[in-house]
């Protein structure tokens, strides 16, 4: 087994996203970084792909036949992205059943580099309290600032965090909105560095839009954030839907990048939570229970 700079076996054994398939040119080498390791990958345009450790004879941009590459890393193509692992990954990635529904729009809103630890970014994604202040007149507005009581559980059989019964007044919940509305949210954290949120669809009250953030840890304090949209929208062009989500993310970015300390403290006494932070508390506890050390400041034992 090759020695890795990251020594957190829990993190090494996970599947990690590298890129949106829709944005990778077929047949040429693409370089990236995962957990401080330089990797390369390629797709062939026919549904085949490969990931390997960066090497001199396969420089970025050079043509490549993926069939003849040796020393390949584990590979999974899921939810429109290419995933790999530096350890022994589980057979399956967490499920997002809605991705298979044919009438949904499935897009990578963008992949952005962010100067933040993956756990800090997940925690921000779970937080509703910042909506009126950071996403003013879109995902929130004063005086509707209260985070109402909601439920959080750590599902043992599915090994994920689930926050339900979340509800927030949003002036412009999505590109399909035509005005302010109380919006229902469900948050899942099925992976230490990935989260999936469900929110009321303005088009169909029986269904939920799905927005997921898949974080690719470059190192302990930098990520590439991949944003999957899997939404109901019959009218807007792809670029309009992407623009909406990029606007939101661009508002979060300076907040994320100014978090201090950059790694997420897991000691329950390190930062004082309020009631609205229930899901963040559960997330920190869950990371502690798993023994995650990468991107966090572990609790003193």
């Amino acid at each position: 087994m090759t020695k890795t700079r990251c020594t957190d076996q829990v993190i090494l054994d996970l599947w990690h996203p590298l890129a949106a398939l829709s944005e990778v040119a077929a047949g040429v080498v693409v370089d990236t970084v995962l957990l401080e390791e330089r990797l390369s990958f390629a797709i062939d345009g026919e549904g085949n792909a490969a990931v390997w450790r960066d090497r001199a004879d396969l420089a970025e941009g050079s043509p490549v036949d993926i069939a003849v590459i040796s020393g390949k890393l584990p590979l999974k193509l899921a939810y429109g992205y290419i995933w790999t692992s530096l350890g022994n990954p589980p057979a399956d990635l967490f499920p997002i059943p809605e991705f298979d529904e044919v009438d949904r729009r499935k897009l990578n809103a963008a992949t952005f580099g962010v100067n933040v630890s993956a756990p800090r970014a997940i925690e921000n994604f779970l937080d509703m309290g910042h909506f009126p202040y950071v996403h003013t007149d879109i995902l929130g507005a004063e005086p509707h600032t209260e985070v109402k009581e909601y439920d959080v559980e750590i599902s043992v059989d599915r090994d994920e965090i689930l926050a339900t019964r979340c509800r927030f007044f949003q002036p412009m919940a999505s590109t399909a909105s035509d005005g302010g509305a109380d919006v229902d949210y469900i948050y899942r954290v099925p992976h230490p560095y990935c989260s999936v949120l469900y929110k009321s669809s303005p088009l169909d009250e029986s269904r939920l839009d799905v927005i997921a953030v898949f974080l690719q840890p470059i190192d302990q304090e930098h990520v590439r954030a991949h944003m999957l949209l899997c939404v109901l929208d019959e009218d807007n062009e792809d670029k309009v839907i992407k623009r909406f989500q990029q606007t939101i993310f661009g508002q979060d970015k300076p907040i994320l990048e100014n978090q201090f300390p950059k790694r997420l403290p897991l000691d329950p006494r390190a930062e004082t939570p309020i009631r609205a932070d229930k899901s963040a508390i559960a997330y920190r506890r869950w990371l502690s229970q798993k023994g995650v050390t990468y991107g966090v400041i572990p609790a003193a034992t």
Binding site: K239, V240, Q246
Partner: peptide, 9 residues
């Protein structure tokens, strides 16, 4: 809107 990124429009 022009999809500057990622679309390079």
């Amino acid at each position: 809107p022009v999809d500057f990124y990622p679309g390079r429009e």
